[in-house]
């Protein structure tokens, strides 16, 4: 049978090889190397910080945060779970993973929220951005691990870059969605009173989209956690490395221990961020209040808390 492949053979793989190896890597390697500097800085800072904190203090802070935003049973789970991680000897790796996750999510937010805002305000931008996000979400991460290693080398920072590529889409999508879903008559009212685009964004769109944006942040966080093991393939440390080492040595116990650590961390982070997002349900929390909430872990009785009960 004749097939198109008999007539024409497209050397697609060669083209990509030529593009990446022949042009991208030699010309832009230094630029990409420089781009990972801020990531390395934030990551090292956080890694040192979390590893320097006494285990009991970190656990206490997390348990309090869980209590405030996710309820008492979650606080108890946090205490027991973190104690378990410590007892199976994986505390330092867990803290490294936590630092990696926070770094990834931070950069995802810094890139993704503005991108989502821009996409929400222009249909053109959204049309271009949407397929890009689709590709980022569907392309198997192993595909971009190779060029990442070529461009950035191996280590923690390249692992985080791979994580960012994988975890970025939800925050962009949900920021876009949240802002587009702000009621049309509110936008009209803001315009009728002579708001500038910036005033509308800060006064109205971001606060009202906050809940959706927080849901996106939660999704991004979960995706980042799921990349931990893959990122470890290109030199990122932490719990992912424990799992990979177990895999390499057919050490079932070691791999399981690392896996359990990841699961416990995932549950705790998920519930806390979900609780944070749901607090916006009452539609009363301004941007400032959210950041204050993030900073103030110990719950002084702020009006937002009371409204949450009422709502």
């Amino acid at each position: 049978m004749l097939s198109p492949g008999d007539l024409l053979v497209i050397p697609f793989d060669d083209w990509v090889n030529d593009f990446v190896r022949g042009w991208l890597v030699p010309n832009f390697r230094p630029a990409f190397r420089a781009a990972q500097v801020p990531i390395t800085l934030v990551l090292n800072g956080l890694d040192d910080f979390f590893n320097a904190l006494p285990m009991l203090l970190t656990t206490g802070v997390f348990a309090l945060a869980a209590w405030k935003w996710a309820g008492r049973s979650m606080a108890i789970f946090t205490l027991i779970g973190f104690a378990f991680i410590d007892m199976i000897g994986l505390w330092p790796q867990t803290m490294t993973t936590l630092a990696m996750i926070i770094t990834s999510v931070l950069f995802c937010a810094v890139i993704g929220i503005p991108a989502g805002i821009v996409a929400a305000r222009s249909d053109m931008v959204w049309k271009v951005l949407r397929p890009v996000l689709d590709i980022m979400q569907t392309i198997p991460s192993f595909v971009y691990l190779v060029p990442i290693v070529m461009l950035f080398g191996v280590g923690m920072a390249p692992g985080i870059i791979a994580t960012i590529i994988f975890a970025l889409p939800p925050i962009v999508r949900l920021t876009n969605l949240g802002i587009r879903n702000v009621r049309g008559d509110l936008i009209e009212a803001a315009q009728a009173f002579g708001s500038t685009g910036w005033q509308m964004l800060v006064d109205l769109q971001i606060p009202l989209a906050m809940r959706t944006i927080m849901a996106g942040l939660n999704q991004t966080l979960m995706l980042a956690l799921s990349m931990v093991v893959i990122a470890a393939l290109i030199g990122a440390g932490g719990l992912g490395l424990v799992v990979n080492t177990g895999l390499g040595r057919l050490d079932v116990g070691g791999a399981t221990a690392g896996g359990v650590g990841i699961v416990i961390l995932a549950i705790v982070l998920d519930r806390i961020t979900q609780g944070l997002g749901e607090q916006n349900q009452a539609e009363t929390v301004s941007l400032r209040a959210v950041f204050l909430n993030l900073i103030r872990l110990r719950g002084s009785h702020r009006p937002t808390g009371e409204i949450r009960k009422a709502g």
Partner: peptide
């Protein structure tokens, strides 16, 4: 018509 008050 529908007031368009800012709920937050």
């Amino acid at each position: 018509q529908h007031f368009a008050l800012f709920p937050h």
